[in-house]
Simulated assay, not measured.
Amino acid sequence: MVTHVSDAPTLQKTPLHALLLERGGKMVAFAGYDMPVQYASGVLKEHLHTRAKAGLFDVSHMGQIALRPKSGDVRDAALALERLVPQDIVAVAPGRQRYAQFTNPAGGLLDDLMVANFGDHLFLVVNGACKAADEAHLREHLSDACAIEVLTDRALIALQGPKAASVLAKKCPEVPAMKFMEAGPRQVGGVACFVSRSGYTGEDGYEISIPAARAEDVVSALLDDPDVAPVGLGARDSLRLEAGLCLYGHDIGATTTPVEAALEWSVQKSRRSGGVRAGGFPGANVILPQFEQGAARRRVGLRPEGRAPVREGAPLFADAASADSIGAVTSGGFGPSLNAPIAMGYLPVSHAATGGLVYAEVRGQRLPLRICAMPFVPHNYKR
């Protein structure tokens, strides 16, 4: 008998892999990991369960990194990180976190990330597909000021939905008092974890970093709650699309600036022209003028006029007969909460006004889409 060895790279497994298989996870390759795309109930029901109760997501493929200041002063780590991101990291108080982006010299985005201040160091969560490059980027530019520790022995889960607080309170009574974007060490069922009140679904919820050796214990206890269902990558994508949130490598990337991506809100005034620590990050000479003058194109929300979904990559046209594309869809699909197709993409600012009409080419047909405000479904964060 001849045994054939696959040329495909071996997929990594998260600390929760065996448990989620037992729970019926249908696994697919994602960011180098074997990850659940859905469970027995299917993407639609998982999506709606998260909006109504609480969904539990394994996001352990993402990178977790500690930046420890060599001086012992966390402000020095924050100042160092500001060399690489356009956000005000110094202003992130202990126990808080902030959304940020690594930029490149052209003003594009190398990755987007979360940055938390744990009092004596910064805790970063970066995208799974980018984590090796992000680590190298940090070591190249920040090793003079920080010890960079990649935390490989931790799982990461997201518990999202209107019942998330009441469910997690049974294991950690402190969490209902946390506000949106609060973060820090917490005991969850007697296990030392890192908990933030945040997520990527538009719902209230938490992200919980757990020591790998205890991850199954914590997650099994949460899944035993009748309000909690395991949710896969499929519903995670439809939830974040309804919330109008960018997916790195699709809606944002190395050729999109924060202004083009409609992420101006994420760059504080202190880092913009005239601010106390303006500039000093890669691509500032491209990004900062866009705050004053605008960018040539913009990420917009799109609602197809019919029932057919319009997928990523579909070219956009100014009218039904134009020969030349003016933009493209970057994310698209069905919005279960709306019972309708939704999408987002980039258009020239001259065609990006809310209420306008553009056309997507789908299988040789021009389908009308209405430009609309985002999010498609209102956010329910605990402010």
Rank of each mutant, 00 (worst) to 15 (best):
226 P>E: 07
226 P>C: 09
227 D>S: 13
227 D>A: 14
227 D>N: 11
227 D>R: 11
227 D>L: 12
227 D>W: 04
227 D>V: 02
227 D>I: 06
228 V>A: 03
228 V>D: 04
228 V>Q: 05
228 V>C: 06
228 V>S: 04
228 V>K: 01
229 A>T: 10
229 A>W: 12
229 A>Q: 11
230 P>D: 12
230 P>Y: 12
231 V>G: 13
231 V>I: 12
231 V>P: 10
231 V>N: 10
231 V>S: 12
231 V>L: 12
233 L>E: 09
233 L>W: 04
233 L>F: 11
233 L>T: 12
234 G>I: 11
234 G>Q: 07
234 G>C: 10
234 G>L: 11
234 G>D: 11
234 G>Y: 13
234 G>W: 11
235 A>G: 04
235 A>W: 07
235 A>I: 05
235 A>C: 06
236 R>E: 14
236 R>D: 11
236 R>V: 07
236 R>P: 07
236 R>H: 14
237 D>V: 02
237 D>Y: 05
237 D>P: 01
237 D>M: 04
238 S>K: 02
238 S>N: 06
238 S>G: 00
238 S>T: 15
239 L>P: 04
239 L>N: 05
239 L>D: 05
239 L>E: 07
239 L>W: 11
239 L>Y: 07
240 R>P: 02
240 R>Q: 02
240 R>G: 01
241 L>K: 06
241 L>C: 05
241 L>A: 08
241 L>M: 15
241 L>D: 02
241 L>H: 03
242 E>K: 07
242 E>S: 08
242 E>A: 10
243 A>S: 08
243 A>R: 09
243 A>F: 05
244 G>T: 08
244 G>M: 08
244 G>S: 10
245 L>G: 01
245 L>T: 03
246 C>L: 11
246 C>R: 09
246 C>H: 14
246 C>Q: 13
246 C>Y: 01
247 L>F: 08
247 L>H: 04
247 L>R: 04
248 Y>T: 07
248 Y>N: 09
248 Y>G: 01
248 Y>C: 02
248 Y>P: 08
248 Y>A: 10
249 G>Q: 04
249 G>S: 06
249 G>F: 02
250 H>T: 11
250 H>M: 11
251 D>K: 00
251 D>C: 08
251 D>E: 14
251 D>R: 00
251 D>I: 00
251 D>T: 01
251 D>M: 01
251 D>Y: 01
252 I>P: 02
252 I>G: 02
253 G>N: 00
253 G>P: 00
253 G>K: 00
253 G>C: 00
254 A>F: 01
254 A>G: 15
254 A>Y: 00
254 A>S: 14
255 T>F: 00
255 T>R: 09
255 T>S: 15
255 T>A: 15
256 T>V: 10
256 T>L: 03
256 T>Q: 13
257 T>V: 07
257 T>E: 02
257 T>F: 02
257 T>P: 05
258 P>A: 09
258 P>V: 15
258 P>R: 06
259 V>A: 12
259 V>W: 10
259 V>G: 08
259 V>P: 08
260 E>K: 07
260 E>P: 13
260 E>H: 13
260 E>Y: 12
260 E>A: 15
260 E>L: 09
261 A>T: 09
261 A>I: 09
261 A>N: 11
262 A>D: 15
262 A>N: 14
262 A>T: 13
262 A>V: 10
263 L>V: 06
263 L>G: 04
263 L>S: 04
263 L>N: 14
263 L>I: 08
264 E>P: 01
264 E>R: 14
264 E>A: 12
264 E>S: 14
